[in-house]
Amino acid sequence: MGNQNKPNTAFKFLSPFRLRVFMALAGRIIPEDREGGKVYPGADNLESMAIIDRALSTKPKDMVLLLKLFLMFFELSGLLFALRPFSWMSAEQKDKHIRRFELAPLAKVRQGFWGLKTLVFLSYYSRDEIWPDIGYPGPRMKRPHPDPSLRALQTAPFRPLPTPLGGED
């Protein structure tokens, strides 16, 4: 797989492979949609990924290792069902794959998926830019946080992706 489509990021946990899987998953858990002529962005954006990366960078090593393995399993098990890794699937195939994990007979598989889904929710709904779309006015008090980089993760506006991710790298 070539790498000219990889965004220029300095993520700690999200290697290009993991970033690609997470982006593909985020794009189905919270996809872009339109209503009343308005476009509502999806969670497949680098700002949300930066939140996921940060959340994972503070987790214990063995937990992160498990998550890495689970993500790989999630991606590659697509080969068994659709003859292609998850991130290479069509939107419908992806949704089917997600449902397979969500309702898997093995509790550990459901648990892994629940964890990934929750991270995507965290990465999206903790961002200021999303709040107007859900009618949430945000904090009442404007207070700084001692770590400005954490605050910046929530307040940085979405940037367009350098190139579409997935499919051809």
């Binding site: 509502y40 997600i98 889904k117 929710f121 999206y124 903790s126 999303i130 859900i134």
Partner: peptide, 16 residues
């Protein structure tokens, strides 16, 4: 918002 989203079942456009 995040905790509320977590407690609601499902995902995809319906959840959104």
């Amino acid at each position: 918002p995040f905790v509320a989203a977590k407690y609601i079942e499902g995902w995809g456009v319906e959840h959104k």
